[in-house]
């Protein structure tokens, strides 16, 4: 059916009364996401949009609503604390949209979240959407359509581009996940690939990586050794110069490591399909299904 979220996910919004939080909460409600509450310290007791209860703390929100998922829109300097608060309150799936979180903060957050048994997606990510059921984050709902392609990406708008091409070609999606462009993130490509492999309603996966790090190479190895479903990959940044950070904090070729060529080579060795352009996902996936 989907991975990580479905129509039964009950979601709270941390930073629900902020500019981004309030805008996207409305969009999520409109899409059909079960938004059961919000958190803004000092605004507990208010109602957002006339119906969604606002709490002072995540613990209160979880106690009152039983939410299992949280989405975070708080400013970067408070994001690490918000993630830890959610994990401590028993939230199982935490989606951090916030861009610009200091990396050293994430080095503390990651083991904490793990010890609490929670899953973190992001930060600096567009969130995820299970078309026709639920969206948590900022991916535009109208470009998606239900179907069997799993989509996973380190990017935002590039994901929209590919999903839009898939939808135009009549290829619907099971779940589209943006794992984020930071060097340290909660959920990796492999986590998503494993979930898609286990999901009976996903038949193939489209994966969009980019330069920097080795997450794609490790994902390719996972595809080769552990997956039966076909995977098609794309790498952004083939023309990126070494040593420069290409917008995303994690998109940087360090010395000679993390190049697009090296990642595409690992895809090839894993027997994956390769999309040289975003539009090529359509033919490459079709040829393998």
């Amino acid at each position: 059916m989907s991975i990580f979220i479905d129509r039964n996910s009950t979601v709270i919004v941390q930073g629900i009364t902020g500019r981004d939080g309030s805008f996207h909460t409305k969009q999520m409600i409109e899409y059909g996401t079960r938004i059961v509450g919000g958190v803004t310290p000092g605004k507990g007791g208010q109602k957002f949009d006339g119906s969604v209860p606002v709490f002072n703390t995540v613990h209160e929100a979880v106690k009152a609503t039983g939410a299992n998922t949280s989405v975070i829109y708080v400013p970067p300097m408070y994001a690490a604390d918000a993630i830890m608060e959610a994990a401590d309150a028993g939230i199982a799936f935490i989606v951090a949209i916030t861009e610009g979180v200091p990396v050293n903060d994430m080095t503390r957050v990651h083991p904490f979240v793990k010890e609490k048994g929670a899953r973190l997606l992001g930060p600096n990510c567009p969130g995820l959407i299970t078309p026709g059921q639920s969206k948590v984050g900022i991916i535009p709902g109208r470009i998606c359509t239900p179907g069997s392609i799993g989509v996973v990406s380190r990017s935002g708008t590039l994901t929209y581009e590919v999903v839009y091409q898939l939808t135009r070609a009549g290829m619907g999606q099971s779940t589209c996940v943006g794992i984020g462009g930071d060097p340290i993130n909660g959920t990796s490509f492999i986590d998503c690939l494993a979930a898609f492999e286990a999901d009976p309603h996903t038949s193939a996966v489209a994966m969009m990586g980019e330069i920097g790090g080795t997450d794609e190479q490790e994902a390719a190895e996972f595809v080769r050794t552990r997956m039966k479903k076909p995977v098609v990959g794309f790498i952004a940044g083939q023309t990126a110069p070494p040593g420069r950070r290409m917008g995303h904090a994690g998109a940087i070729i360090s010395g000679s490591a993390g190049t697009a060529a090296e990642k595409l080579e690992s895809f090839e060795q894993a027997g994956m399909g390769i999309a040289r352009r975003p539009i090529e996902f359509v033919e490459q996936l079709r040829a393998r299904m």
């Binding site: 380190r154 990017s155 998109a251 352009r277 975003p278």
Partner: peptide, 30 residues
Amino acid sequence: VVNGAGLAMATMDLVKYYGGEPANFLDIGG
């Protein structure tokens, strides 16, 4: 001129794919 870092890189790559050379990476943000 592109919005989003991933799409900006993919746009540069597509310029190269069609035989051109990108003059810059530019992300106007969200």
